[in-house]
């Protein structure tokens, strides 16, 4: 954009004006479009927030933009009733373990599938990513039987490992796509410098794939943070349960306590958004260009 306006400076004043008007018009339309889409995305969040400040009686009748008598204590009630203090730490632990596991294992495998040669490579790749495709209706029962045999029922590990496995297919697929497109020159020169496979992978390929790793981290964080079906299957002890177990308190078979549920949802969403905010910088930096120059 800057280069182009610099060029147009060489033209007549009229052209400059025309360029400017055109740019402004385009910019207005672009922003109008972006704002429209943004509004549709923000509205539900705002609705959930506004609902969290209402009472069970007013939640579906009071349609005001912001309730006139905001019930801030809903947040305190939700926090204590849902026992979030305990579950937060658990969820944090599970999320970190699963995400680190997926990033490490998937990136290694993806790197091998993209760069290294070994017999049976293509078949193996297909088999691994096919886990994404077969929706196994009975898999939960089979998984439970398996975890029981391994002695992993009601343990943290029994909850973490299946989730790492669950994230691998997408991870390998996504990272391989990005590795395939990375320039090979840097790796080649490192190899000439005497670096082994692992050092090339760890010191060169991984940093280059940072945007893709960030995307994968974002996806997996959200998946683990929102997981509850597997937790209900594998875990019994309350001390081991993740965050979503807390939200169940507000959703009875017949009664849903909407304001408290919404307060709980807002509380659980905030950390995900904060982490996303942090990670998206890594998507954006686009370090590839700099690396090639280096």
């Amino acid at each position: 954009m800057n280069t182009r306006s610099a060029l147009s400076l060489t033209g007549t004043a009229n052209e400059v004006n025309y360029e400017r008007v055109k740019k402004l018009t385009v910019s207005v339309f672009v922003h109008a479009f972006l704002v429209l889409v943004s509004f549709s995305c923000l509205f539900p969040l705002w609705w959930a927030f506004a609902s969290s400040l209402k009472t069970q009686q007013t939640v579906f009748t009071d349609l005001s933009f912001f309730p006139s008598q905001p019930q801030w204590q809903n947040y305190l009630t939700a926090w204590t009733k849902a026992n979030f203090g305990l579950y937060f730490l658990n969820s944090l632990f599970y999320t970190v373990c699963v995400v680190v596991g997926v990033l490490l294992i998937a990136s290694m495998a993806a790197y091998a599938f993209s760069r290294l040669q070994f017999p049976g490579k293509n078949v193996l790749f297909l088999v691994l990513i096919s886990t994404m495709m077969i929706p196994i209706p009975g898999s939960f029962i089979a998984l439970y039987v398996l975890l029981n045999k391994l002695g992993l029922v009601d343990t943290r590990l029994g909850y973490i490992l299946p989730q790492i496995n669950g994230g691998l297919a997408l991870g390998i697929f996504l990272l391989k796509t990005f590795f395939d497109d990375l320039p090979k020159e840097l790796e080649d020169s490192a190899r000439i410098d005497g670096c082994g496979r692992f050092r090339v992978y760890w010191h060169i390929a991984l940093p280059l794939a940072r945007p893709a790793l960030a995307v994968l981290a974002i996806f997996n964080i959200l998946a683990v943070w929102n997981e509850y079906i597997l937790a209900m299957l594998v875990l019994s002890a309350k001390q081991l349960m993740p965050l979503q177990r807390g939200l169940m308190v507000f959703q009875g078979a017949h009664i849903t306590q909407y304001p408290l549920l919404m307060a709980g949802i807002v509380i659980t969403i905030l950390p995900v958004l904060a982490i996303y905010l942090m990670l998206q910088k890594h998507i954006i930096k686009g370090i590839t260009a700099g690396a090639v120059k280096g």
């Binding site: 680190v100 990033l103 490490l104 990136s107 840097l186 020169s189 490192a190 410098d193 760890w202 010191h203 060169i204 991984l206 940093p207 280059l208 940072r210 790793l213 960030a214 981290a217 890594h282 370090i287 690396a291 280096g294």
Partner: peptide, 14 residues
């Protein structure tokens, strides 16, 4: 050429 050391220190994974 050894600029990758810099990346090593920044690695997300770490």
């Amino acid at each position: 050429m050894h600029s990758f050391k810099k990346f090593y220190e920044l690695t997300l994974l770490r």
